[in-house]
Design a binder for these strands. Structure first.
Length: 334
DNA sequence: GGCTTACCTTTCGG
DNA sequence: ACCGAAAGGTAAG
């Protein structure tokens, strides 16, 4: 299906994929902290860079519309459809997964009502790795700004939209320069500057971007081990990359949010005062046992709900999380 | 092995 | 307004 000047503003050729809202809720997925480069360029229209090109996406009830800019590689067609289907992993039936997770877990069923259509993106491994290196001990607002500056400074400029320039995510080689760390520090990366440049070096001198991508075919444990050998990559970042770029649907990234949820909502008895590797392992195993082999996908739904909870008006906060009766724990005020 | 502490910088809540 | 604490952690002791 194709139209000229379809539901929206921009000129150009629009195409659509069949895609019910139960399978994908664009604004939830693109704001759920999986990818940091999509922005709502106008109400309901999301612009960003994917596969080296600039896209705008827009969702109708049963369709996902998109258009491309910069017309270097021709008009949208079956090949670009496939790029989008691959990125959103539309072959994975989300509706059935939600049902199965909800059947196994009443708390999931409650929370998922407010977060339908949350799926895991299949991202480029290099972008995903370096993006999540930037997330450590950091806020989403700052992470987003840092990554944008990273792309402006080190990425190829693609085109302008509404006077806003779009840049590709930097290639590995762009980050291996001798002055990369200093430049990143100047961009406000703090101590992560050394991690980014160090990991770029280690990869370039080791398995390369191709080797990183090749971990898609490796077992979860091996991919995790390779990633954790990179500077600035610990268990949490490694699990994010495994889940969101390396096809490891069973990887459950355990951050402070999930740690808190595991204790407070799921009543896990986790003795430690801090999030140790052992606790990380235990929590991952617990959720894999509860949700099954796509536990990481279910975690993404819970995380999305937790993010949204912080954005809602204070009065309605926590409603979906409250389990009526049992468990009097409250979140700490923020 | 688990627990502390330092680490850059920005944002947020008091 | 000003200041401390926390932020999708990681590495070193």
């Amino acid at each position: 299906m194709r139209l000229r000047a379809a539901p929206g503003s921009q000129p150009g050729l629009w195409r659509a994929l069949p895609c019910p809202q139960a399978e994908l809720r664009l604004e939830l997925v693109l704001r759920s902290g999986q990818a940091f480069r999509w922005r709502e360029s106008s109400p309901g229209a999301w612009s960003g860079v994917l596969a080296g090109r600039v896209w705008t996406l827009r969702q109708e009830r049963e369709r996902l519309w998109y258009t491309l800019y910069g017309d270097g590689d021709g008009a949208p067609g079956a090949d670009t459809d496939q790029i989008l289907r691959d990125y959103f992993q539309l072959d994975v039936g989300l509706r059935e997964l939600y049902r199965a997770w909800g059947d196994a877990d009443p708390l999931f069923r409650q929370v998922a009502r407010d977060c339908p259509g949350v799926r895991v993106l299949r991202q480029d491994p290099v972008e995903c790795l370096f993006s999540f290196i930037c997330t450590s001990n950091n806020h989403i607002s700052r992470i987003t700004a840092m990554i944008e500056r990273l792309c402006q400074a080190f990425g190829r400029r693609l085109c302008c939209l509404d006077a806003q320039p779009f840049h590709a995510f930097p290639s590995l080689s762009a980050l291996t320069g001798a002055d990369a760390e200093a430049r990143l520090r100047a961009l406000g990366f703090g101590y992560r500057a050394k991690f980014v440049s160090g990991s770029a070096r280690a990869l370039a001198e080791g398995i390369g971007a191709e080797g990183l991508c090749g971990l898609r075919a490796a077992p979860y444990a091996e991919a995790r081990r390779v990633l954790c050998a990179l500077p600035g990559v610990g268990t949490k970042v490694a699990d994010c990359v495994c889940l969101m770029a390396l096809d490891k649907a069973e990887a459950v990234p355990v951050d402070t949010h999930i740690w808190r949820i595991a204790r407070q909502r799921y009543g896990m008895a986790l003795g430690g005062k801090s999030l140790t590797p052992r606790a990380h392992q235990e929590i991952g195993d617990f959720f894999r046992g509860l949700w099954g082999p796509r536990a990481g996908w279910a975690q993404a739904v819970l995380f999305c709900a937790d993010l949204r909870k912080g954005q809602e008006p204070a009065g309605s906060r926590d409603q979906a999380w409250e389990s009526r009766g049992r468990d009097s724990c409250r979140d700490k005020p923020r």
